[in-house]
Simulated assay, not measured.
Amino acid sequence: MLEFHRHGDIHEIRLARPPVNALTPELLSALRTAVQEAPAAGARAIVLSGGAKVFSAGMDVPHLMGLDPAGLKAGWASLFAAGRAIASSPVPVVAAIGGHSPAGGCVLALCCDYRIMARGPFRIGLNEVQVGLVAPDAIQHLMRRVVGPYRAERLLVEGALVEAEQAHAIGLVDELTDGEHVVKRATVWLEELLKLPSASMLATRRIARADLVAALESFRDDDLDAFLGEWNSPGTQAALKALVARLGK
């Protein structure tokens, strides 16, 4: 479910679950472990990449709907655990977004230090509202810190997915490039960052990202239970079943 590539001191972790890198508990657990273990394996920085047309389509809803309550809770907890691992990584992490990145894919990207997206009709955003879910405040914080409170409000309330050019214009992604170059641009950006005095750069980064880490760590068990209550509500279940039916076509 993951592929690993080394670009000198920069380690690439590539999501590799065809066809759209839909996120399962197993994939997210493997990602969390890979991010946590990379520095000990010599990584001074990490590139998180995905598919050529889809970075990640978000959580694997059909898979989640087949889980029992304990498995469902563990599945959603795995998304937050992977996000926390990325956000709290002691080395910089860049998202190389080669295509669409809705919902959980966007969450992972927002936990990274920097986001490089492929030009084209690719969409990114937190579209939970469209399937009857409420993005928890910890997730909303991720959006607010990169696009600002009012812009985040508009995007979140509408469950909007924006195309790459607009995402760049509003700061949701930091840079656009051709799809085949997203990983290369990510490594170049990191190589420049790693030329700075390491101790001061990493200490400054840790201070600057403290709010991000705190927001994700604030998401407790009772918050997850509240989220799952929404997931199990009749309206949300109807929307999710309609989504699964569309995916089946």
Score class of each variant (00 low, 15 high):
residue 24 T to F: 00
residue 115 R to G: 04
residue 112 C to R: 08
residue 119 R to M: 12
residue 119 R to A: 13
residue 27 L to R: 01
residue 201 M to F: 12
residue 210 A to N: 01
residue 43 A to N: 02
residue 158 E to K: 09
residue 110 L to E: 13
residue 248 G to N: 14
residue 175 E to F: 13
residue 48 L to A: 06
residue 28 L to N: 04
residue 29 S to C: 11
residue 87 A to F: 05
residue 48 L to K: 09
residue 195 K to N: 11
residue 174 D to N: 15
residue 67 L to Y: 00
residue 11 H to G: 02
residue 206 R to H: 12
residue 75 G to K: 10
residue 247 L to W: 14
residue 154 R to G: 07
residue 187 T to P: 11
residue 194 L to P: 01
residue 133 L to Q: 06
residue 2 L to F: 03
residue 185 R to T: 14
residue 28 L to W: 04
residue 215 A to V: 00
residue 125 G to C: 09
residue 4 F to G: 03
residue 135 A to E: 05
residue 57 A to M: 15
residue 147 V to P: 03
residue 18 P to C: 02
residue 113 D to Y: 07
residue 193 L to H: 01
residue 97 I to V: 14
residue 133 L to C: 05
residue 247 L to Q: 10
residue 28 L to K: 03
residue 96 A to T: 08
residue 69 P to F: 09
residue 58 G to E: 13
residue 102 P to A: 08
residue 146 V to R: 13
residue 44 R to Y: 02
residue 77 A to P: 01
residue 13 I to N: 01
residue 233 S to F: 10
residue 76 W to I: 13
residue 94 V to E: 11
residue 11 H to S: 09
residue 223 D to F: 09
residue 114 Y to A: 09
residue 178 D to S: 15
residue 89 S to W: 03
residue 52 A to D: 13
residue 65 M to E: 04
residue 191 E to V: 00
residue 1 M to S: 13
residue 183 V to T: 04
residue 19 P to M: 14
residue 162 V to D: 02
residue 191 E to P: 00
residue 64 L to Q: 03
residue 202 L to D: 11
residue 35 V to F: 07
residue 23 L to H: 03
residue 123 R to V: 13
residue 34 A to L: 07
residue 193 L to T: 02
residue 118 A to T: 08
residue 203 A to C: 06
residue 185 R to F: 15
residue 25 P to M: 11
residue 162 V to K: 01
residue 35 V to G: 07
residue 72 L to D: 05
residue 202 L to G: 10
residue 55 F to G: 05
residue 73 K to E: 15
residue 151 R to E: 15
residue 8 G to C: 06
residue 174 D to C: 09
